[in-house]
Structure formats: structure tokens, C-alpha cells
Amino acid sequence: MKTIYVTAIFIFMAVTVFAQGGPPATPIDGGLSFLLAAGGAYGAKKLMDRRKNK
């Protein structure tokens, strides 16, 4: 009888562990903004270089 209680306790403990939520979402706004700004600057430089060569 004691083993049944111990088994039940471990089963319910496992259920509560899996019921918890995952880690919070990581914001990517700072890095994404930097990449967009760098890409825009690179594109503007390429356009200026292309116009300068013509």
C-alpha cells in the first residue's frame, strides 16, 4: 500500500512540473532594429556608389 502512495505522489509531482509554463519570450526588437538600420545604410551606400560610377 505504501508503494502505491509513493508512486501516486511521484506521478502528481511530474504532472505539476509539466504544467508550468515555458521561459518568457525574448524580445528581438533591439537586434532586429539594428540589423534593419545596417541593411538600409548598406543599401544607401551601394546606391550612392552606383550613381557615382555612372
Rank of each mutant, 00 (worst) to 15 (best):
P24C: 03
F10M: 12
A37R: 12
K45V: 09
M13K: 02
L47E: 03
G31L: 10
A19Q: 13
F12W: 13
L32T: 10
A25S: 01
P27Y: 01
A37W: 06
K45I: 08
P27G: 02
A38D: 10
T3Y: 12
G31F: 08
F18S: 08
L47A: 15
F10Q: 03
G22N: 00
T26I: 12
T7Y: 03
I11C: 14
G22K: 04
R51A: 12
M1Y: 07
G21Q: 04
A41P: 01
L47D: 11
G40K: 05
Y5I: 11
G40H: 01
M13R: 00
G39S: 14
G30S: 14
A37C: 09
V17R: 00
P24K: 10
V6I: 15
D29S: 14
G31H: 08
Q20A: 14
G39P: 02
F18G: 05
P27V: 03
K45G: 04
M48K: 10
L35R: 12
T7M: 08
V17M: 09
V15G: 02
A8P: 00
A25L: 02
A19D: 04
K52C: 01
G31M: 11
L32R: 12
R50K: 14
G30E: 11
K2M: 06
V15L: 15
M13C: 11
G43K: 06
P24S: 10
A25D: 04
V17G: 05
N53D: 04
L36G: 11
V6W: 07
I9W: 02
A41S: 15
A25K: 09
L47H: 03
R51E: 05
F12M: 12
A41E: 08
L36N: 14
L36I: 13
K45M: 06
L32C: 00
V15A: 15
G21T: 06
V6T: 13
R50G: 02
I4M: 07
Y42C: 07
L47W: 07
V17Y: 06
K52Y: 09
T7K: 03
V17P: 01
G21C: 00
M1R: 11
D29T: 14
R50W: 09
I9R: 04
A8N: 04
D49K: 08
A44H: 06
A14Q: 09
A25Y: 01
Q20N: 05
K46T: 13
K45R: 06
I4S: 10
P23A: 11
P27A: 08
T7W: 00
T26N: 03
P23V: 00
A37M: 13
K46Y: 12
G43Y: 04
I11L: 15
K52L: 11
I4W: 07
G22L: 00
I9H: 03
Q20H: 07
M1E: 06
F12Y: 09
A38Y: 06
I9D: 02
V15W: 03
K2P: 01
P27C: 05
A44F: 14
A8H: 05
A14R: 00
M1F: 11
M13H: 02
I4A: 13
T7F: 06
Y5A: 11
T3L: 13
I9E: 01
M48T: 06
Q20F: 09
G39I: 09
A19N: 09
I28W: 01
T7A: 13
Y42D: 01
